[in-house]
């Protein structure tokens, strides 16, 4: 009996998916690396030197990183009280419903969500109107088309995403663990510090990592809420491909963006590996 299970040949099942990934993902990635290293006279790092010597490109890279770090940080902090509330303050039966209430807008278009914030934040939008209604003073908000508006828009997204991953970690904590700690005299604060926080950490980290990836590569929120005057790297890539069409420059920017993700994600990955080793020991 046990033998028959080993005779499944995985390749017919695996090949279609794998082929798609190789053709549309692996080969283009290799091609992109090659393109970024291609210069007028053979191969070299000239494209990268050019990138780092062009102030408006390095500034865009800087903005991308600041934007992603700010939004991810805010989102990850907001996620704790939200996930904590859903998991520990809501009846077990209703938990998925409360989670859905937070996640529902998540399933709709990124662009439309960013656009809907324009209606609220713009100088003659709902917020300014509401402010005037209460105080009687007409103000120019000046929020829309700034970096802060971008950070705000992405932070909202990050908090939803991190709440989702953190929820997954918190909901699987064994209640008996908490009850035991409490029976032995642990106060809520130390239960949080010694049980809930360490066990929620993997879910939290996963949320932070995914948030950062989305933020670094996003073009919609920076365009619709941040405006086009101080572009981030993703906006510049979009305009190159639809404008000047300098392919090796586009490839170079893409590689730099990928490196940014890898470099910023590295501490998290290393942490995850170390943690896994420690747990298995």
């Amino acid at each position: 009996m046990g033998n028959s299970s080993n005779t499944i040949n995985p390749w017919p099942f695996l090949l279609p998916a794998l082929l798609l990934c190789i053709l549309f993902f692996l080969i283009p990635t290799v091609n992109m690396v090659v393109l970024s290293l291609t210069t007028e006279n053979g191969y070299g790092l000239d494209n990268f030197k050019l990138f780092f010597n062009t102030p408006h490109l390095t500034q865009a890279l800087y903005r991308s990183i600041i934007l992603a770090i700010s939004a991810t940080t805010i989102g990850s902090l907001v996620a704790w009280p939200l996930a904590y509330f859903i998991v520990f303050c809501v009846n077990k039966k209703w938990r998925p419903l409360f989670l859905l209430a937070i996640l529902a807008p998540f399933w709709t278009s990124f662009t439309i969500r960013a656009f809907s914030w324009q209606l609220v934040l713009s100088d003659n939008g709902v917020m300014a109107w509401f402010f005037e209604l209460i105080t009687g003073i007409s103000v120019t908000l000046g929020i829309l088309y700034t970096m802060n508006a971008s950070i705000f828009g992405l932070a909202l997204f990050c908090s939803m995403l991190t709440t989702f991953t953190l929820y997954g970690a918190l909901v699987s904590i064994d209640i008996k663990l908490i009850e035991a700690a409490s029976n032995l005299g642990a106060k809520p604060l130390s239960i949080f510090k010694d049980i809930i926080f360490p066990l929620g950490l993997p879910g939290w980290m996963a949320g932070i990592f995914l948030s950062f990836i989305v933020c670094v590569g996003d073009y919609a929120v920076p365009t619709l809420l941040g405006g086009g005057l101080k572009p981030v790297l993703a906006q510049i890539m979009l305009s190159i491909l639809k404008g000047t069409y300098d392919l090796s420059q586009a490839a170079t920017i893409a590689i730099i963006l990928a490196m940014t993700v890898i470099l910023c994600g590295l501490p998290l990955i290393v942490y995850g590996l170390l943690r896994r080793n420690r747990l298995s020991v």
Partner: peptide, 22 residues
């Protein structure tokens, strides 16, 4: 390899495909 596209910014995958077909 199969789940990797999930942890890569979409714009990079899009650009990669565009450069490839060009």
């Amino acid at each position: 390899i199969v789940v990797c596209p999930l942890v890569i910014p979409m714009i990079l995958i899009g650009i990669g495909m565009r450069l490839q077909i060009v």
